[in-house]
Computed example of a mutant assay.
Amino acid sequence: MSRTGRTTADRERGAPVEVARPARRRRDTPRDRRRRRLLGAAAALAVLALAGWALWASPLLSVRTVRVDGATTLTAEQVRTAAGVAEGTPLLRVDVEAAEARVARLPQVASVQVARGWPGSVVVTVVERRPVAVVTDAGTRSLVDAGGVLFDTVTGDPPAGVVPLDVPSPAPDDPATRAALGALVALPGEVRAQVAGAVATTGEDVTLSLADGTVVVWGAGTDAEDKAAALVALLDQVASGALEPAATIDVSAPDAVVLR
């Protein structure tokens, strides 16, 4: 007998051979297809729900650190306190605009940006106001930035390079304040360091006093760059001995400077 189960006699008589056929595959019905679609949709919803939970409520993507960049006079803790972002808050739930608004209320801050740092930090980047002058208003000495904003008080000596400014009503929209600050900002650092004080009663009569006693009549706040260039050139000539020192340098008309 062979391995197929047929005897030699069977083969000789030509007996029919039974061939094993593969099982017929069950036809895919509309109901099956509908079931698969439902299962796929359920799986997709489960994935979306898991992702939503991970972003909105999971401690895996929550605030672990609040980093502060750009602070110099302010401490990082002062900025973090103002931002009010609590550790453990899911990053997606951090209201960055509200945090920016809170930090912007600090007088020393000129601008601020709050950003999420995935997977677990918030970054607060501040640009602090830079003092240009110091004014006395209602008995209080305050630092003033280039825009005329009074943003901090001082009791001792002001920072290096900060010029005492005498104006009647220091404020960002005050013409005298704007004109005087425009003059100081236009001067290069080495010349501004020689300015001992600035005075203006209106936006048309700015006067600078240098440390050596020289009085600079600046005049109006217009043409500040040209006036600064003329003053620098004259001071260089005086320093080199090409010109005799003058008690007063009038650069109110930069094309026709007068020395007295």
Rank of each mutant, 00 (worst) to 15 (best):
D32I: 02
A44M: 12
S62N: 11
A42T: 12
A42S: 13
A41H: 04
V68F: 03
A42M: 11
L60Y: 10
L38R: 14
S58I: 07
W53Q: 07
P59N: 09
V47H: 05
A49N: 06
R64G: 15
V66N: 08
V63R: 12
R36F: 02
A44H: 04
L61S: 08
G52R: 06
W53N: 05
G70T: 03
A44W: 08
W53C: 01
A44K: 07
V68R: 11
V63T: 13
A54T: 12
W53R: 06
L45Y: 02
A42H: 07
L48V: 15
D69C: 00
D32K: 02
L45E: 04
R33Y: 03
L50E: 05
L55F: 15
A46M: 10
S62V: 09
R33N: 01
T72D: 10
L55P: 00
V63P: 01
G70C: 01
A49V: 13
L38Y: 01
T65C: 01
A54Q: 12
R37Q: 09
A51E: 05
R64I: 01
V66Y: 05
A41Q: 03
T65M: 03
D69T: 11
T65S: 14
L55D: 02
L38C: 01
L50N: 04
R35H: 04
G70S: 03
A43N: 04
A42Y: 07
R35T: 06
L39G: 07
L55H: 09
R64N: 09
T72G: 06
D69F: 00
A57V: 08
A44E: 05
R36Q: 11
V68N: 08
T72Q: 11
R33C: 01
R33H: 03
R64Y: 00
A57W: 14
L48T: 09
A43V: 12
A71E: 13
L39R: 11
A41C: 06
L45V: 14
P59Y: 07
V66D: 02
A71S: 13
L61E: 07
L38D: 02
R64V: 12
V63G: 10
A41W: 10
W56N: 09
R34K: 09
R37G: 02
A57C: 06
R33A: 10
A43L: 15
A44S: 09
T65P: 00
L48I: 14
A41D: 01
G70E: 00
V47I: 13
G40Y: 03
T72C: 00
L60T: 11
R64M: 00
A43M: 09
S58V: 03
L45N: 04
